[in-house]
């Protein structure tokens, strides 16, 4: 099976969907001639032409709004945010226009808004955010956060085929660091289904995105100490796989909720509420969060390192929880 990077897997997924369905087209800044700021769309202009790989002005609101309009009349636009931080400029179109149309008057809005998010590359406050929760709290949207190359391809394809607006988070730290066996043929990973990234028995670490790798690293380190971590990769946050979360909790009885996003209002809070509502009597210890602190993402490497959850922090929390 071919080995692809996270980024190549996303590209291949989009590529295949564009070949498969002529209504799929791309909108974004610097995605055509330049091939995208991270080169996700490299080669696509040459392959699919300027009508389907459209360079736009710097107008996030117009890009999203135009994608909605085109989607309403039958196309399947895939929008790139150069950085997911900039989606704020098109926020109104995402949360007020795209998210609510189907509920309001029944029209499908099959758009995908994708782009790089996350920290770890010294990008500073505006090129590092994990802002997925802005959209997880917006009914009508779907929010997808893959960790592996396999899932990145399968989920981007599922997102493009979905009849609802999907916000697709690509972690820039994973783009070229993560390599995976990715089938060359067509497959989709269903939105809303989690994946057990590692089986374990003592503590379930429930996470998503780049933190899946952090959790796996911690799990490996703790194995020698006799603490067995299960790692659950959510893959989608809206909708999310409630059953998989509860299954891991019921199996391990202790839980760490891990994300790169900041703490207050992070996804861990939602999961903690779910677990306490539906699996309270399966808990053998407190629900523990490992997250970034409630600050913007700092630039300077020591600050950023302090900010980001890492395997050491996860392992420390896991040791304490195991002894609880």
């Amino acid at each position: 099976m071919p080995i692809l990077t996270h980024l190549e897997a996303i590209r291949q997924g989009i590529w295949e969907e564009m070949e498969r369905d002529p209504s799929v087209f791309l909108l974004g800044e610097d995605i055509g001639v330049y091939g995208g700021a991270f080169k996700v769309t490299a080669g696509m202009l040459e392959k699919f032409g300027a009508d389907r790989v459209i360079d736009t002005p710097i107008s996030e609101s117009a890009i999203v709004g135009a994608a909605v309009g085109a989607a309403l009349v039958g196309l399947r636009p895939v929008v790139e945010m150069q950085f997911m931080d900039f989606i704020a400029c098109g926020f109104d179109q995402v949360v007020n226009m795209a998210a609510k149309i189907h509920y309001r008057w029944g029209a499908a809005v099959p758009i995908v808004i994708r782009g790089p998010s996350g920290a770890g590359v010294h990008g500073g406050p505006y090129h590092s955010q994990s802002n997925e929760m802005w959209f997880v709290h917006t009914p009508g949207l779907k929010v997808v956060v893959p960790a592996t190359a396999y899932d990145a391809k399968g989920l981007i394809k599922a997102s493009i085929r979905d009849n609802n607006p999907v916000i697709f988070y690509e972690h820039k730290f994973l783009y070229r660091r993560i390599k995976d066996e990715v089938p060359a043929e067509d497959y989709v990973v269903p939105i809303g289904k989690a994946r057990v990234a590692r089986e374990g028995t003592d503590i379930a670490v429930i996470t998503y995105g780049a933190m899946v790798w952090t959790a796996l690293e911690a799990a490996q380190a703790l194995e020698q100490e006799g603490i067995s971590l299960e790692v659950l990769d959510l893959r989608s946050l809206l909708p999310y796989d409630e059953e998989a979360v509860l299954a891991s909790v019921r199996k391990c009885n202790k839980v760490i909720l891990l994300h790169e996003d900041t703490r207050i209002g992070g996804f861990a809070g939602e999961l903690a509420a779910l677990i306490s509502e539906k699996a309270f009597e399966d808990l053998d210890g407190p629900i523990i969060r490992v997250t970034a602190p409630d600050t913007p993402v700092p630039f300077s490497p020591p600050l950023e390192e302090y900010f980001l959850p890492n395997a050491k922090k996860v392992a420390e929390a896991a040791r304490k929880l195991a002894a609880y």
Binding site: A66, A67, G69, L72, V73, L75
Partner: peptide, 21 residues
Amino acid sequence: ISPLGDTLPVACGVALAFKLR
């Protein structure tokens, strides 16, 4: 939608679809 002006980009998208088709 009540944040007025949001329909203008949408109109562009509709017209873009016309153009692409």
